[in-house]
């Protein structure tokens, strides 16, 4: 349990990953990539619901002001307007916080967008436990909610390298896509030759067959860090990054799981209804039973506080990974 008096109290950058010390980072990969690609793709438009600054879409606004629309604090309208633009030939990138997309505008994503395979690309800010504003701002069940929508693609990128590829790739993925946004100074974790493929889980590190981490989002970066740290204990831990939550790469996950005696499933999300649930379903249906540890959030609402404090208290930080690797619990 974290000591609230000894851990930093500042919330720092709104919705930014905090453990970036000593890492190379890229600033605002979403908005910068979108602004660049839109130079040659006039059909791209950008929208926000008063969250331009905190979603990093402002570089796009500054580069293409005539194609940028801020609808104000009206998330239902954000999705409707995006759907209308998409149904008239545009590719609509839209942004606000995950909580408002999922909890407030769900019906509009399902019916106005996904049902029509509308080219709406939702970049959902601050997914999971990535800010200190409490349950009102922490989308800790967004994957669980969104994976219930048919024909919706869901992507949870790992780092800046993958995320920039995702920003470009979603333009050509048919239909509506929900991406868990990474904002601010986003760490570069994956090598330059990493290639995102929609619907494909990627082995980031092959281990010795003892312990394998199956993870998504920036928890895959944390898994990689933990695997490196475990080398000093003589452990060689594998890491599989499930960058696309839906469609789920059942074959890739099963193939990886078969190679390891013990699994750790890690996600920046509740352990109910997200990656852990998907993996366990896949394992069960394949007739595979393995000892496994789930790293993620409890089925609860969470409080306000600094990122370090919350991640420590709710056990999604590096020490939690080390406990899982060393002790198997």
């Amino acid at each position: 349990m974290a000591d609230s008096q000894t851990i930093g109290n500042r919330t720092r950058g709104m919705g930014e990953i905090v453990d970036v010390a000593g890492k190379v980072t890229e600033t605002a990969p979403f908005g910068n990539t979108l602004a660049e690609m839109a130079k040659t793709r006039p059909e791209i438009v950008g929208l926000t619901a008063d969250m331009g600054r905190y979603s990093d879409i402002l570089p796009f606004r500054d580069a293409h002001p005539d194609r940028f629309f801020n609808v104000g604090m009206a998330e239902q309208n954000l999705i409707m307007v995006a759907a209308g633009l998409a149904k008239s030939g545009k590719i609509a990138y839209c942004t606000t916080y995950s909580v408002f997309i999922t909890r407030r505008a769900y019906d509009f994503v399902a019916i106005a967008c996904a049902h029509s395979m509308a080219n709406v690309k939702i970049f959902a800010g601050m997914p999971g436990l990535v800010n200190g504003y409490g349950a009102t701002h922490q989308a800790t069940e967004d994957i669980n909610m969104m994976r219930g929508i048919a024909d919706l693609t869901i992507i949870d990128p790992c780092d800046a390298t993958e995320f920039k590829q995702v920003v470009r790739a979603v333009a050509d993925i048919p239909g509506t896509v929900y991406v868990r946004n990474l904002r601010g100074k986003v760490p570069v974790e994956l090598p330059e030759d990493y290639r995102f493929e929609v619907g494909k889980a990627k082995v980031l590190r092959e281990g010795d067959g003892e312990i394998g981490i199956i993870s998504t989002g920036y928890m895959s970066a944390r898994g990689l860090d933990a695997a490196k740290m475990a080398e000093s204990d003589g452990k060689n831990v594998g890491v599989l990054h499930v960058g696309t939550i839906k469609p789920f790469d059942t074959a890739g996950v099963i193939a990886f799981a078969k190679r390891y005696k013990q699994l750790i499933i890690a996600e920046n999300h509740k352990t109910t209804g997200g990656l852990a649930t998907l993996v366990i379903e896949a394992l069960y249906e394949a007739g595979i039973q393995k000892p496994l540890v789930k790293i993620g959030l409890a089925d609860s609402f969470f409080e306000c506080g600094s990122q370090e404090y919350l991640e420590s208290k709710y056990a999604v930080d590096i020490p939690r990974f080390m406990t899982a690797i060393r002790d198997g619990v």
Binding site: V45, D66, R67, F69, Q76, N77, I79, M80, V81, A82, A83, G84, L85, A86, K87, S88, G89, K90, A92, D107, F108, I111, A112
Partner: peptide
């Protein structure tokens, strides 16, 4: 699903203007 029309009309109107 009522209440879905006008906002999509706004989006289409903006696309036509663009």
């Amino acid at each position: 699903s009522l209440g879905h029309g006008l906002g999509q009309a706004v989006g289409m109107a903006l696309a036509l203007r663009l």
